[in-house]
């Protein structure tokens, strides 16, 4: 995985596979404590304690197509390389919380990557999922909640390409305002203004 946004896409996919109704993603950047924290929390089916304890082992997986599962193992490796750790708390039938901690300034901490692209694809593939994304920096906090977005867009489908573009632009604008780390470009325009269409 090249960056954290790809890890987020990967781990959030586990939540969806676990039948989650709500997935909550929280990123915190705290330069004074040299901390970058990523939390992905769901209300899916959870794991048995003995499975949860072994889940970062690459030879442990729920999939049946083959015998390895690299998602959490790779995230854990990236955490450990950047002076941090990975913590998984899971309760059967209640849900799972994955917390990845990195040293913010560590040279081996993967960059945040294109977080808006990750979020819009989670939405595109799971329009009925309640997705909450929260990003906190020293300058403030931004919360993106698909329930609020649904209220704002009315009867438009959440996974309409134009709505996805709008959500993306909304996220990028706000991340810039709080000075959040994010590698993306804001190329939002409504299709009618686009001469290439």
């Amino acid at each position: 995985m090249k960056d954290l946004s790809l890890h987020i896409l990967d781990i959030a996919e586990n939540s969806v596979a676990a039948g989650a109704q709500t997935v909550r993603i929280v990123i915190e950047e705290q330069p004074d404590q040299d901390l970058y924290r990523l939390v992905i929390e769901d209300d899916g089916k959870g794991m048995e304690p003995d499975f949860a304890a072994r889940v970062t082992d690459p030879w442990v997986t729920t999939r049946t197509t083959r015998k390895v599962g690299m998602g959490l193992s790779l995230l854990q490796q990236n955490c450990q390389l950047a002076g941090g750790s990975l913590d998984i708390v899971s309760q059967k039938d209640k849900g799972t919380r994955v917390t990845a901690i990195f040293r913010l300034s560590h040279i081996d901490r993967p960059p945040a990557g294109d977080i808006p692209a990750t979020l819009r694809l989670i939405i595109a593939a799971n329009p009925d999922l309640h997705l909450v994304y929260e990003h906190r920096t020293q300058n403030g906090k931004f919360v993106f909640d698909t329930r609020q977005v649904k209220d704002a867009i009315g009867d438009l489908p959440l996974n309409h390409p134009e709505v996805l573009r709008m959500c993306s632009a909304f996220i990028i604008e706000n991340l810039q305002q709080i000075g959040a780390e994010c590698q993306t470009k804001n190329d939002f325009k409504l299709a009618e203004n686009d001469i290439n269409h």
């Binding site: 867009i153 909304f170 604008e173």
Partner: peptide, 27 residues
């Protein structure tokens, strides 16, 4: 080009969008 910084902007943009497209029920 207007920016989308708040949910209110999002609402305004989606109203513009609704006027332009015909909504098909894909599902």
């Amino acid at each position: 080009m207007t920016k989308i910084t708040s949910l209110a902007d999002l609402k305004k943009k989606s109203e513009e969008l609704k006027r332009r497209i015909d909504l098909r029920e894909k599902s």
